[in-house]
Every structure is written in structure tokens, then in C-alpha cells.
Design a protein around this nucleic acid. Sequence first.
DNA 1: GAGTGGTCTAGACCACGTT
DNA 2: ACGTGGTCTAGACCACTCC
Lengths: 243, 243
Amino acid sequence: MGAKVAALCAELGPGAMLPGERDLSTRFGVSRATVRKALEELMARRIVERRHGAGTFVRRPAVAQPLMATSFGDDMRRRGLEPSSRLLWSDTVVADTDLAARLEMPGGEPVLRVCRVRLADGEPMTLETLHVPSSRVPGLTGDDLDGPSSYYELLAERFDRRIRSGTQSVAPVVLATRDAELLGVPAGSPALHFVRTSRDHRGEIVERVESYARGDRYLIEMDIIPPGDATAGAAVLSGAVVP
Amino acid sequence: MGAKVAALCAELGPGAMLPGERDLSTRFGVSRATVRKALEELMARRIVERRHGAGTFVRRPAVAQPLMATSFGDDMRRRGLEPSSRLLWSDTVVADTDLAARLEMPGGEPVLRVCRVRLADGEPMTLETLHVPSSRVPGLTGDDLDGPSSYYELLAERFDRRIRSGTQSVAPVVLATRDAELLGVPAGSPALHFVRTSRDHRGEIVERVESYARGDRYLIEMDIIPPGDATAGAAVLSGAVVP
DNA sequence: GAGTGGTCTAGACCACGTT
DNA sequence: ACGTGGTCTAGACCACTCC
């Protein structure tokens, strides 16, 4: 449903006002509630803008495709770049109490660690270290994650684990010399430090990734809402790569 | 409505499973759709977690109150800190083509600039530079923004302009010596560089703020969604201050 | 199978912006 | 006034999880 409305937006072009919700519901043969849900989704994706009493409008700039925090490969492809990975090293360690807690696994069991540089069109973008309990991905090795392969695809195909939810934090850091070298930027350059924890459909953690993203190639964009608006929805996050 | 369910969540405590939607709807005497809307709001505010077929649960950590990107003062108060401002300087400049375009105003007209350090419990948190077309806030001076006063309150009370929407970008930077001094951190410390543009209810830009936030006190948290999920909703953004 | 959330319909009234 | 989006009701069926 949302796709039909999105197509209509593309057809009308930026700045255009969409037909009213009642109109759309008869036009597409669905109820108004369904149309509203679709419009709310497009709103969240920053494709349309709604003004109470005025109407729904296709967003002016529509600059880069609004993006959600997803996988590296998807992000890059959406920007028309070719994603790839270069394996730096991988090993298996025994989880101490701390690591076990973070991965929600029994302590003392093995954990696969994989360190990769992620590239877009051959240029280093991020430096990632992945942690996953070995028992949840039996047989997986670092080599499986070299080249163009996607960890999320591997998870789905070989282990029938599909990413369902996750949480991520972002903080600014200054790159250490070694990390800066791997990313091809001067030592002391600014970067974003991401820590992502993802769960599969069963609720189990299937990855904890710490990554450093080049500050000159990453920025985060978000919508903001009026201060003091208690009933306000969430701010919307989208990422963009600086050209 | 959402408040009632939020109160129930607080009562039940972290990790607890909420009653089903049908149960809640009879309990509160509203329709199930209304309950769902309230739950979606709590979901966006990261207060509850929902699992299809399983149930709705109060979020485990509920660490710091989840926050939306709002005004500095609101952010700090929500964290139990006392916000304040220290005026560094202010002046009025004539907008060149670039600045005029960014503020969506005619070129050649005056723009008020105000530079402030924002503090929480007396400790520097961010360094802000505000730009606003003078014609939209006639009579406003930098001194009006010294001390505990809120720009947003001034806008509403003196100029009848209420913030309605806005957009913000975030990038990592390394602090210059002077900026680091003002923020009370060592030179070369990491920071987040925010650029916020806010519009009032008439759609006019009433502020463009560039700010530097201490990297040791700010981090951004967001939910992530499955890769390749075209119909997925938006990632949720919340901010947190590192203790 | 029983209970959960996810989706949908058809209709109503309210709040707001435009004219 | 009129049309817009915002909210709500009452009921239905589907998809999923868990026992």
C-alpha cells in the first residue's frame, strides 16, 4: 500500500500537494485508516510532510534518499556505491563475564571476533569489529566475511536467523594512528563511534559490532520536534554520506 | 491516553509483560485502536518493546529517560540538571547570499548572531552560535538570551512564534583550542557538531544554530530496523548524556 | 489451540487552516 | 463554510509465538 502512495509522490514531484486522505482511500479502494498508515510511514521516511488543516505535501528537497540505520551494504547500495569488505583478522576468544553479559550468553563459551574494513567503491568507510557467540553461528569463520558477502545474508541462509531489531549508539571520537591508517585518513581525524547490537527473530543477540566511521564521510540527519510537546512522536533518523 | 499506559508500565516495572491490547482497551474503556496508538507512541519513546505473538513488555534497562532532539533546556531538565546559558558575544551582521539562502530571507538584511555556552549544573555542555533574521525577532538582543531565559519561550511570548518543525544534522569534529577551552576540555577532544534549523508555525525559519557538544557528555542512541525491510518504520532517535 | 500483536474496514466527530 | 488532517469506535480476520 505504501508503495502506491510513494509512486504517486514521485509522479507529482517535490512540493506538490497530495489528494486528501478520503480521496486517496476511494482512489486506491482501501479504508482511510489504511491510507493514513501509509502516509505516516512516508512521513517517517521523510518523503511527505503533513500540515493539519492544510494538506499533505511531497517534500521539497528530497536531497539524498532518506536512509535508515541499516546494514552497511544496504546503505552504500542505496547511495549508488558498491560495498565491499576487507578482512583484517579474525579469531575466537572465550567470553569473560563482561562480554558474556553484553552478548547475553553463558560465560566461558567461545565468541567469534572478526575485524574488517568496509569499503564503498574501494574507498575505506568504516572499521568494524564484530562479536558473535560461536554457538549461534556454528562453523562460521572470519573468511566467510571477506569480500562482498553479507553477514546478514549468511545469517538468514545458513543459520535461519533474520535480524529483527537492534539498538545502536553513536559518539564522536578522535582516531588513533593505526585506525586512521586503515581508514586512509590523517591520524587525529574525527570519526563516529558506533556500537550496534542486533537481535534475530527469536530475540537472541546475533551481533555486537563496534565500528569507526570516517567523520568526513558520515553525517546523521534527523527531524526535530517542538520542545515541550509531550505527545510528540519520535524524531526520525536518517543517515547520509557526505559526497 | 498514552499517559495512563505509561503509568501502568512504571507500576509494573522493567521486563514485565503488559496485559494484551484487548484487555487494556476494556480496562481503560477505549477502543483497541486507541490502545494501539498509545502503545506505538510508547514504542517510539523506547518505553515498551513489542513482539508479535508474544506480547508487549516494559523495556529492560530504561536507562536514562529516552529523549527526543528538543531544546537544550528541556533536555537538561529531563535529566534532572539545571540548564543555564552564558552569553559570550552577540552582534548583527548583514546577510550575504549564502546566509540569506540558509535562513530563507532576502539578502542584504540584518541578522542577529548570538554565541553562548550552555551549561548544565554549571558545567559547560555545548557551545552554540545562533543566527536569526532580525526582522523576525524585532528588538531582540543577545542580552535577552543571557542567563536562564529560553529562546523558544521568548519566541512564543514576545513574537508569537512557536517552533513547529526542524531538521538537524550531526557530525563528529575535533575541537579547536579556543572552543575546547570554552567547554572546559582538553584541546583536540572529540565533539559532536550539530546544525539545527527550526521553523515556526508559519513555516519561517526562526533559528539556525551551530553547536559543539562535548563528546564525553553526549551520545546518540537509536533503534535500528531490519535491512531490506522496505516497509519498515523509521529508526527512533534518542539522546543521552553520559554521566 | 489459545492468546498475542498486525492489519483492515466503515463510519463518526473534532481541531485546524484556508477562503 | 469548507476541506484538511487528527482522533476515535466496534468489529473482523490474519500471522505469529508459545504451550
